[in-house]
């Protein structure tokens, strides 16, 4: 317990120091440690024996063909899978040294610390402002100024502030698709999470919106631990420091993005990256 606390402080210290480049070059202790993780739904085994470290203030891209368990893995990191009644798992996932599957864990708190952006923009049927304050309010923030401030900073981080600052009271579904996705990003950022999970966040967007999202993510890389699932290997190469390759429920390999894309250890990784399958 003591050591977990210490670690948390250390990580916070690194995060708060705003020296992203430093983080990226010397990883330090892992933010998330995954060990021997198996998962499945009912009779179906989806993930087999995944062990992986995710370092603070780094972007980890997860690539691989469809059906390889990428999304299941991502949804395990904030325990969204636990909502499925037939979800089962073994092994452990530690967030700052704390097992997120332990029975005494406050799941809502885990999900606030580990925010998630989905493949398609899903605005809640509320106004833009209410969408952004939904999470913070649930976390117990009532102060109006604090909420306004959170809305503004998170919208600015998602490069959306200038477009919507005068229409915060409008229903969120009035926004265009690309704007909706950036609003969803801002909605996650308003919780000031430590980890960002991105599940193919650009798969439903046009190239211009994709570029805007990537710009926003680029701005954020120094402050957040990012896990990005993508089908787009180019995006993985552009927007990550480390890359993991998932195939048929197993993690084939994981390493610095530059290495994975130029000199992978496994034949199947290079086959996938060069477009031989998947």
């Amino acid at each position: 317990m003591m050591s977990a606390n210490n670690e948390m402080h250390k990580v916070d210290h690194i995060r708060c120091s705003h020296v992203g480049e430093h983080c990226a070059t010397s990883p330090g202790p892992a933010k998330i440690v995954v060990r021997d993780f198996h998962a499945g739904f009912g009779e179906t085994q989806v993930l087999r024996n995944v062990s992986l470290d995710i370092y603070p203030c780094q972007r980890l891209a997860i690539i691989g063909p469809a059906g390889g368990g990428k999304t299941t893995f991502l949804r395990s990191l904030n325990r969204l899978n636990s909502l499925e009644h037939d979800f089962r798992h073994s092994g452990s996932i530690l967030l700052d040294g704390q097992d997120i599957f332990a029975s005494n864990v406050d799941v809502a708190r885990i999900r606030r610390r580990v925010g998630m952006l989905y493949a398609v923009p899903i605005p809640l049927p509320l106004s833009i402002y209410e969408n952004l304050t939904y999470g913070p309010r649930l976390a117990g923030i009532r102060d109006r100024h604090r909420l306004d401030e959170l809305v503004e900073t998170s919208l600015k981080s998602a490069i959306l502030w200038d477009e919507v600052k005068d229409r915060l009271r409008e229903p969120a579904h009035n926004l265009s698709g690309g704007q909706q996705q950036r609003m969803c990003l801002a909605r996650v950022l308003a919780l000031e999470p430590e980890v960002l999970l991105l599940d193919e966040p650009c798969s439903g967007l046009d190239p211009i919106s994709t570029a805007k999202i990537e710009d926003a993510l680029d701005e954020l890389k120094s402050r957040y631990t990012v896990v990005l699932v993508t089908n787009n290997t180019k995006q993985a190469a552009r927007a990550s420091e480390r890359t993991a390759f998932f195939l048929m429920g197993e993690m084939i390999e994981c390493g610095p993005t530059a290495v994975i894309f130029t000199n992978p250890r496994h034949g199947r990784t290079s086959d996938y990256i060069t477009g031989h399958f998947g």
Binding site: D106, P136, G140, L191
Partner: peptide
Amino acid sequence: MRASQGMPKRSPLGAWLDRK
């Protein structure tokens, strides 16, 4: 100040009630 840490600390009983 992050939102999740701005939450008041729960007593053990409160936390147990939350979980249940």
